[in-house]
């Protein structure tokens, strides 16, 4: 399975994603320069974390105009899997490929810490190796990770099972204290309506082996591998996410 990892000027999780995918999970991984327009060689794409264009103006606001983003949009329309991590999530929102926006953390400070995530939908292409309600331990590192969407959008996200992760406490309860950035409804990760694009602020590539403090991040990449492999061999269709998942 071949992962394409997009590199914008200022991206810095590209190497970490490459290492996690290739060296830890044993999959193929290639860097994709932001001026690339052909994504056909890749089974799935990762938009990694970092500060593309310095996050000047607004996180992701400039990167969305990079040539590769046109190709990413077409890739998404064709049903390809796209995982946006941190800055990647911000870029996907700016590009309109995911609903809502990521604003400055409510306390106005950067946060680098471990968080707990509750898996709200275990039927997605990104969580199919998780169990519903499973609690994952994954670190965050961002200054603009406060998820916002209007009430109608939130209702839809919940109704269609597009909320994939919420920040929770270690026992899985969604509490204000477990929310590191003020995100609405503790939202940490969402998909688009079709379910083939996931944006998440936490960094799964930073926790794929015990030596780095935890290995829960593997589940997300393994889910992608499992989904894409299944699709390639025709064992399962690109299933739409189950609606009404617990929220």
């Amino acid at each position: 399975m071949r992962f394409g990892i997009v590199v914008f000027p200022g991206t810095w999780s590209d190497g970490d994603c490459h290492y996690a995918v290739r060296d830890v999970l044993g999959q193929d991984a290639s860097y994709v320069w932001h001026k690339e327009r052909d994504l056909s060689p890749y089974d799935c794409m990762i938009l990694p974390g970092g500060f593309s264009y310095g996050d000047y103006l607004r996180a992701g606001a400039i990167a969305r105009f990079s040539p590769v983003m046109g190709a990413v949009e077409a890739y998404v329309q064709a049903g390809g899997l796209v995982l946006g991590i941190c800055n990647g999530f911000q870029i996907l929102c700016e590009a309109g490929l995911l609903p809502g926006a990521l604003t400055r953390n409510h306390h106005l400070q950067y946060r680098c810490q471990w968080t707990h995530l509750r898996v709200e939908n275990a039927d997605s292409p990104f969580t199919n190796t998780c169990t519903p309600g499973q609690v994952l331990r994954v670190p965050i590192s961002h200054g603009e990770g406060c998820y916002y969407a209007d009430a109608a959008t939130l209702r839809e996200l919940n109704a269609r099972g597009q909320v994939i992760f919420r920040y929770c406490d270690p026992s899985g309860d969604i509490t204000p204290g477990a929310n590191p950035n003020g995100s609405l409804e503790n939202i940490a990760g969402i998909t688009n309506t079709r379910g083939n694009v996931l944006g998440m602020m936490p960094h799964p590539e930073r926790c794929c082996e015990g030596l780095l403090g935890g290995a829960d991040g593997r589940l997300i990449f393994e889910s992608m591998v499992s989904f894409a492999t299944g699709r390639r061999t025709g064992l399962s269709a690109a299933a739409p996410p189950r609606s009404g998942a617990r929220s």
Binding site: G15, D16, G49, Y110, C112, S141, H203, R206
Partner: peptide, 14 residues
Amino acid sequence: VYRQYDHHVQTNTI
């Protein structure tokens, strides 16, 4: 102090 600094990136921090 240190929660304001990224101390994980490059995934070498053990």
